[in-house]
């Protein structure tokens, strides 16, 4: 045990060694704590960036979609827009948004320019060729999702 005495200096009770040795002996902790905090913040930041995932929902029911609450009052069937990603050569194209196949970029602009009053009453089906990359299918899905329609994969 280290010998200590208590003295009153400037009105405060302070601890002081009998021999006058400085009370701050030992290693400096401050730089080490700084480094540890920086490392912790770095790893927490990395984990947050790596965890930036979300998802797109899609129906996979083969049956006709159930009408939304708005549709039955009108007595109308649920409108369905059928689209398909096809490979023409090595380039993916989209069928169903016009008389001819259009590229994905064109499809994106066509979809974003659509004006729908009740998009959640509309069902869009997406199908694709076997060799159509999933990234392009998801891209089309994303465009429809931005519009607020319901998407069904076939």
């Amino acid at each position: 045990m280290k010998p200590w005495i208590h003295t009153h200096e400037h009105g405060a009770l302070r601890k002081r060694s009998i021999t006058g040795a400085p009370t701050t002996s030992g290693p400096m902790m401050t730089p080490m704590v700084d480094v540890v905090l920086v490392i912790l913040i770095f790893f927490m930041g990395s984990a947050t960036i790596a965890g930036h995932e979300w998802f797109l929902g899609a129906s996979i029911e083969d049956n006709d979609p159930q009408p939304t609450p708005a549709a039955p009052t009108l007595g109308l069937p649920t409108p369905i827009i059928e689209t398909r990603v096809v490979m023409l050569g090595t380039t993916p194209h989209v069928l169903g948004l016009g008389p001819d196949p259009i590229t994905l970029d064109e499809a994106r602009s066509v979809i974003s320019s659509m004006d729908m009053d009740d998009p959640d009453t509309i069902v869009v089906t997406i199908s694709a060729d076997d060799d159509a990359p999933m990234g392009d299918v998801v891209d089309l899905h994303d465009s429809w999702n931005a519009l607020g329609v319901r998407v069904r994969l076939e």
Partner: peptide, 20 residues
């Protein structure tokens, strides 16, 4: 998707990345 539909699953969620 066909397998999921066959066992009664009606919807799926496709995991994607948020833009940076």
């Amino acid at each position: 998707l066909d397998t999921l539909e066959a066992i009664g699953v009606t919807s799926v969620e496709f995991v994607t990345l948020k833009p940076m």
